[in-house]
């Protein structure tokens, strides 16, 4: 099985003492990897390090075999992402926003922008300025932007932000369909364990800047626990271990 993403011993310390420590994990082709943890656990920091938005103090990241620090363009060529909040140029339309992103990819057909807008349900509003969009519409645009380049690896940070129940189901179905039909690999950071539990085949649990557990969902949940119960138990174990240390 091909390893699309390798995160090796990544450490980042912020001036406030927080950050992430020695985070290592791999994401294989075809995985839907759920990156789970409470708010402030360090999920977004790890995602930003993967995408080169933050430089780690130590450690390496390789995407499609290319080191992000040395060969950024090659590493990012087949990556799509929605990170932190779905920001866009508010003075432009959704279509124009996507047009800017599309220019980076030489072999992208012109119809691709309409395809992804259709896919996320924004086609009727594509020529409206983003400044008039609701939070949910912006989130859908962020998702369209992440999927625009037909990426092999998609990183999503809290993709359900601002979406209603129908929107959340749409996102889940889109992820499952792309994974099944096109073999797209996903790394999804979220604190919504129930949502992730429905689609992820692997998970990594972040707590207080540490990756405390990774594994296949089927194997980890053999005891009949739900994902939420399992994650909470893992976090409690980690807290107990720290108290005794």
């Amino acid at each position: 099985m091909d390893t699309l993403l390798e995160v090796q011993d990544v450490t980042k310390r912020y001036s406030n003492g927080r950050g992430v420590r020695n985070v290592s994990f791999d994401v294989m082709k075809g995985d839907i990897f759920g990156f789970i943890g409470p708010n402030g656990a360090g999920k977004t920091t790890v995602l930003k390090i993967i995408l080169g938005l933050i430089r780690p103090d130590e450690g390496n990241v390789r995407i499609f075999g290319h080191p992000v620090a040395e060969a950024f363009e090659q590493a990012m060529n087949r990556v799509g992402c929605l990170i932190e909040t779905a920001d866009a140029y508010e003075y432009m339309s959704a279509y124009d926003n996507l047009k800017l992103s599309a220019r980076f990819y030489l072999d992208l057909p012109k119809t691709r922008m309409d395809q992804v807008l259709e896919q996320v349900g924004l086609a009727p509003y594509k020529h409206e300025r983003v400044s008039g969009y609701s939070l949910g519409m912006k989130q859908r645009l962020g998702l369209a932007s992440a999927l625009l380049s037909n990426p092999g690896l998609v990183l999503l940070d809290e993709p359900a932000n601002g979406l209603d129940i129908e929107g959340m189901a749409d996102v889940r179905n889109t992820i499952l369909r792309l994974s099944k039909e096109q073999g797209v690999t996903f790394l999804i950071a979220s604190h919504l364990m129930h949502d992730l539990g429905m689609i992820a085949n692997k998970i990594g649990i972040m707590h207080n800047g540490n990756l405390i557990r990774t594994g296949n969902v089927d194997e980890l949940l053999q005891g009949g626990n739900t994902l939420e119960q399992f994650v909470l138990a893992q976090i409690q174990e980690e807290k107990d271990a720290k108290q005794h240390a």
């Binding site: 080169g52 938005l53 990012m76 990556v79 990170i83 920001d87």
Partner: peptide
């Protein structure tokens, strides 16, 4: 406006 990252996560060096 937090839009700088829209460019920086595309295949382009800083």
């Amino acid at each position: 406006a937090r839009t700088m990252k829209l460019v920086l996560v595309r295949p382009i060096t800083r």
